[in-house]
Design a protein around this nucleic acid. Structure first.
Lengths: 262, 262
DNA sequence: CGAAATTTGTGCGTATGTATA
DNA sequence: TTATACATACGCACAAATTTC
């Protein structure tokens, strides 16, 4: 006899397979806990361990009274290569996002705009070349599409640059922060992007309305003039609703293929 | 009295705070389940719900007999901008990785190399412009550093190109697959990278030796000649051990800062 | 609209197995 | 070997949210 894996893992594997093969489709209900208890002849505790696995994998969500439902994922693309360099009209880095969502027929907006002064921790200090303990200017907001939160974004600026560019104000800057900096001689000519992922903090989970098994993508862009770092932008993406896209080099073959599809 | 959150969440929050503030450091043991039961006057079940939260957040790992321990994390950088275009000597896309790890004084290697023919699913079909159901050539391996798995990588090639370039062999190709394709007229001149994150499947978790709360970063690179897609490379990174890095534009300020640090 | 039934969430207790120190 | 500590599994009760009638 094969060394048997735990009961709850077997039950989870069975449900996972039913979802993968489409026997249970996105949006549909799984059998209730009672059903699963009866089907497998196990205690409720064991059934809940199995369902807990699927929740932690982000495959299902459970709601009291409703049941356990297979999640569906929709994807918004964040084009890192040109998100900040096209149609920069409205707000800080609030730019290509709205035009891209509009193309997809979705309503994009920014909420909870906030400006504050923060003390540079080791992270900011190193990347912005600011002494630890010095103040930096933080400007952030939340991106929404169709009333659903997509990502949290906060940009940090060295104090002297923020002052020169007129960024130390508690509201949006006409034309965007990037242009405001460029206008006073701080032009962004280099970018370093660092991307990783982790599970969200409870605060992030609340703001992004994340299901329990959904990680966040952490996207950190540091920009440079020819002399120094100008800006550190931290974006926290809900990973079930976002992809980050880079296009490099000669894309004529890709573009031709896209046209053919349309 | 504030609307009380569930007991197990309160207990988890307390432990989270002790870890964040450094009262319990990486590598150290949390109080045992028995201790936590006594401290908070709750049942073991409740204590385990709290510890389960921390595990799902990737903060701790539990081992029978040993206890529950705060995880420590090491980071390897994957330089997407030039990982495939520098020092391409050894294997398929096995290139800059080894030289970079060597610079950090770590031992890099590739294991479990495998070639197989697969039927194109909807994903491959669309991106490689191959009819669904057609065979594609798959070549994959696992990256290790200091005996620890970092990422799973599999590349898919359209059958005709793989044949021309001599990739339909169950072993490494001298000089790398990219050169082999270029040598027969299929030169990569464009790249589209798609990055997202999700929780691992049990299989991925096993191969990457992931703790239960660790997501994976899914990195999909499609490359193009001037005419058509050449290759789809799917990389699954353990998110607690990897970052993906892009450097764009003029980085002279960043490089100067790096030199100064060293 | 309100009441009842359904379904998951939280919490208790207990027992046995298994890996580690 | 023994003790410790987590893993798995059983049972029960009540609360909270949703759907159904």
């Amino acid at each position: 006899m094969a060394q048997s894996e735990p009961l709850y893992q077997r039950i989870a594997a069975g449900l996972r397979e039913q979802i993968r093969t489409g026997q249970i489709k996105a949006g549909e209900r799984l059998p209730t806990e009672q059903d699963l208890m009866a089907d497998h002849g196990v205690s409720r505790n064991t059934v809940r361990l199995a369902l807990g696995m699927l929740q932690n994998e982000g495959m299902v969500t459970s709601t009291p009274g409703r049941g356990t439902i297979v999640r569906e994922r929709i994807m918004a693309d964040y084009h890192a290569t040109w998100a900040e360099s096209r149609d920069r009209r409205a707000s800080d880095q609030a730019d290509a996002f709205q035009s891209e969502m509009a193309e997809q027929g979705r309503h994009a907006e920014y909420r909870d705009f906030a400006m504050s002064l923060e003390v540079a921790g080791p992270d900011f200090s190193k990347r912005l070349q600011v002494a630890e303990g010095e103040p930096v200017v933080s400007r952030g907001f939340i991106r929404y599409a169709d009333n659903q939160p997509l990502s949290l974004q906060t940009s940090y600026y060295p104090m002297d640059i923020a002052r020169e560019a007129g960024l130390v104000v508690p509201n949006d800057v006409a034309g965007g922060a990037i242009r405001a900096m460029a206008a006073v001689g701080h032009e962004e000519i280099g970018y370093r992007d660092e991307i990783t992922a982790r599970m969200p903090t409870p605060d992030e989970a609340r703001k992004l309305q994340l299901g329990s098994g959904t990680p966040v993508i952490i996207y950190a862009r540091t920009t440079f003039s020819d002399k120094r770092p100008l800006r550190l932008t931290l974006t926290t993406f809900a990973s079930d609703r976002n992809r980050v896209i880079y296009e490099l080099g000669d894309m004529r073959a890709y573009l031709a293929q896209e046209d053919a599809d349309a």
